[in-house]
Amino acid sequence: MNKLIATDAVKRGMAHMQKGGVIMDVVNAEQAKIAEAAGAVAVMALERVPSDIRAAGGVARMADPRITEAVLNAVSIPVMAKARIGHIIEARVLEAMGVDYIDESEVLTPADDEFHILKSQFTVPFVCGCRDLGEAARRIGEGASMLRTKGEPGTGNIVEAVRHMRKVQAQIRKIILMNDDELMVEAKNLGAPYEILKQIKKEGKLPVVNFAAGGVATPSDAALMMELGADGVFVGSGVFKSENPEKFANAIVQATTFYNDYELIGALSKELGSPMTGIDISKLAAADRMQERGL
């Protein structure tokens, strides 16, 4: 029997198993255990959550391997970790450590302000952020096995994630309704690989799972993103920067599953304590907008 590793079915399939679930940012083993107990489908190991990265300033890099290792050893659910955009070596190091998924992430300071990693060359699957279908299709073209909206990380403000999810969905609907002879120019306009748009048109959907990320702070935020067609939700600072992480983690997981049960979401949102403090996007200096990172 011949075993094939790193095929599309294996790499993309892993993200299919995360659908309808919540992936939580954690910075140590203790937080990872809280996330797992709350029903997270995976954890993202990193040195600081995005809001702390904003506060700290300077260059944000791959986490100290001791943190990633501690998280890998603490839980039985999948562990993801972030590498800088274009940082081939950080990604190879994370792959060698055995992480289950790499997020080539704009939350960290990009290592390459022009090119992303050629993700198809890796055994470990990647997730990447996108603001529109062009960006989504370019990342798929490079080998990303999962997508997420970029949103605006570390702000606790859902507006950018909503914008990005709506935009991708609207552009997919446009592709589906378009005539075949119009597709090549649309590929040029979007900056998207033609073959991937053809596939989207044929299947009527993206070839990979697309989660929401970047600004989810409450159970209702998570449910809103599911309502808008997200396959699942990443919560960065929203859990462990809230007043009561365990309660928030539990409530966000349940609100994601039962996203159209409004009585339940109301009940889940009671007496949670304060969510993370948010940031108005218009008050954010252009240089502080993480979503602009990566082409």
Binding site: K3, L4, I5, T7, A9, V10, G13, M14, D100
Partner: peptide
């Protein structure tokens, strides 16, 4: 094993004539 050990393979299933393309994820 972990995700990097995930694989697919054509395997024999009792009662099926042709092999089955089986995707194993963690």
């Amino acid at each position: 094993g972990r995700q990097i050990d995930s694989f697919e393979a054509n395997i024999e299933i009792e009662g099926m004539k042709a092999p089955f393309q089986a995707v194993f994820i963690r």
